[in-house]
């Protein structure tokens, strides 16, 4: 049963992402990606990473996708944008994607992952354990990522704050 669920979710994931990259209307692309993200969140739950799956929904679906939708509406781009696309580029792009997929898969095909998931600690996906990891093992990365956010924030301000001169 759970195995079937995995394959269903995977299929949804793949199909929606394919639809996402091919759809002309950006708004729909965002929505397809949203579906994809939800199914990824479902996969997280199946992997017993409940905390991450919630964070994933909050961050991606709740924040990032909303940001996208907001920008699309803000720029009034909900109508399909006519973008000239040569067939050649399409073919090349699809071919490249397929090649990368093929190369990576063949590289990994022979790998014996060798892990017998018999002994699985169900708690590793819990907030308490992850929290300890984040604030102990990963304290330094956690701290320095504040710099990352700070610079992203400054960047957004620089880009879109109105000049004095504009007024």
């Amino acid at each position: 049963m759970t195995a079937i669920l995995f394959y269903i979710l995977s299929a949804v994931c793949i199909i929606s992402s394919i639809l996402m990259i091919f759809h002309k209307n950006a708004m729909y692309s965002v929505l397809y990606l949203l579906i994809c993200f939800f199914s990824v969140a479902g996969l997280f739950v199946m992997l017993n990473a409940q905390f991450l799956s919630i964070v994933h929904v909050i961050v991606y679906a709740g924040a990032i996708m909303v940001l996208f939708l907001y920008v699309i509406m803000f720029l009034n781009m909900s109508t399909p944008v006519t973008i000239r696309k040569s067939k050649l580029i399409m073919v090349i792009a699809c071919f490249t994607g397929a090649m990368v997929c093929f190369v990576l898969t063949t590289a990994l095909w022979a790998t014996d992952f060798g892990s017998d998931p018999a002994i699985v600690d169900q708690n590793i996906g819990m907030a308490s354990i992850l929290g300890k990891y984040l604030f102990k093992e990963f304290l330094i990365p956690f701290e320095v990522s504040s710099i990352l956010f700070l610079s992203a924030m400054v960047g957004v301000v620089i880009f879109n704050k109105k000049d004095y001169k504009d007024e």
Partner: peptide, 23 residues
């Protein structure tokens, strides 16, 4: 890997910046 490749294809394929970001 399949998802990654689809994303990659999307980046190469689309000229709409929004779609590129999504990919």
């Amino acid at each position: 890997l399949v998802l990654f490749s689809i994303g990659l294809t999307g980046v190469l394929l689309r000229r709409n910046l929004i779609n590129v970001f999504l990919s």
